[in-house]
């Protein structure tokens, strides 16, 4: 993956995001019941959907890494999960704000989607210490892929179980996202979904480009060292590079 197209992609992302936000704040009608605070919905739900899709895509990339033994898939898997964890923080914060505005509490346990998301988020947080605990690079990549696959399979099962637990105890009162959305709300929601999705892709590409560049830099530095031109103050690489997959081209 190279930096080409990244500029265009960034511009597109900015435009769609801008359009989406304009729609959210100036075009889509106020919700009858919830009023202004319902507008969190247009950012919270797309964030959550994109993060979850990103987690599962990380699992798919992990699977492809095991199949092909190609390091690039491990790097993709890592960056997908990394980005989705960051989006996950935003999901939890917006979710809590919404809960506070709607129900007066920052956390409500009978909102199964949010609870499921928290569990998934916590699981993916362990991805970092897990990678860090394995020193051998090949093994780290392989184990991380196994983690990504296992966690990817876990995501839908977890949502199912948590939702069942809630609906079995007391039927849900709120229909947050599914069904019954008026056309204008649906349209705005979809624009925001595309915007957030594009944002995710742009950031992932940026991150991958950065990894590639730093991989090349350390390769060059080692080549220089081998020739006796430079000495490295950091021969083993930074901690960050040790957890993150190394993207040197061989």
């Amino acid at each position: 993956m190279s930096g080409r197209g990244l500029k265009q992609l960034s511009i597109l992302t900015t435009l769609v995001m801008l359009a989406g936000l304009l729609l959210v704040f100036f075009w889509v009608p106020m919700d009858d019941v919830e009023g202004f605070r319902q507008k969190v919905f247009y950012i919270h739900v797309p964030l959550a959907i994109v993060a979850l899709v990103g987690f599962m895509a990380g699992g798919v990339e992990g699977f492809r890494h095991l199949r092909t033994n190609d390091r690039r898939h491990d790097a993709n898997s890592y960056v997908f999960i990394h980005m989705s964890v960051i989006f996950g923080v935003a999901v939890l914060i917006t979710g809590m704000l919404w809960a506070k505005a709607s129900w007066g509490h920052y956390w409500v346990w009978d909102e199964p989607t949010l609870v499921s998301f928290l569990i998934v988020f916590l699981l993916y947080c362990t991805y970092y210490p897990f990678r860090y605990a394995i020193e051998d690079r090949d093994r780290q990549a392989r184990y991380a892929s196994v983690f990504a696959i296992t966690a990817g399979a876990f995501v839908p099962l977890n949502f199912m179980a948590v939702r069942m637990a809630e609906s079995l105890i007391h039927p849900r009162v709120f229909a947050t996202s599914e069904g019954g959305l008026p056309g204008s709300m649906m349209f705005t929601f979809l624009v925001m979904l595309v915007a957030v999705g594009l944002l995710w892709i742009t950031l992932v590409k940026l991150e991958l480009l950065g990894k590639q560049t730093s991989g090349q830099v350390s390769k060059l530095r080692r080549a220089l060292e081998a020739e006796g031109f430079a000495t490295s103050a950091d021969p083993e690489g930074t901690v960050g590079r040790r957890i993150a997959p190394n993207l040197e081209s061989r």
Binding site: I119, V120, L122, L123, T126, P129, F130, A133, I134, E135, R139, Y143, V146, F147, T150, A151, F154, L157, N158, M160, A161, V162
Partner: peptide, 22 residues
């Protein structure tokens, strides 16, 4: 997975607990 890592005792509960919530 954990047994081949440096933080075996720590990783098992850390990874396992979220996975067994369902």
């Amino acid at each position: 997975m954990a047994v081949n890592s440096r933080a075996r005792d720590l990783l098992v509960p850390l990874l396992l607990l979220p996975l067994v919530v369902p």
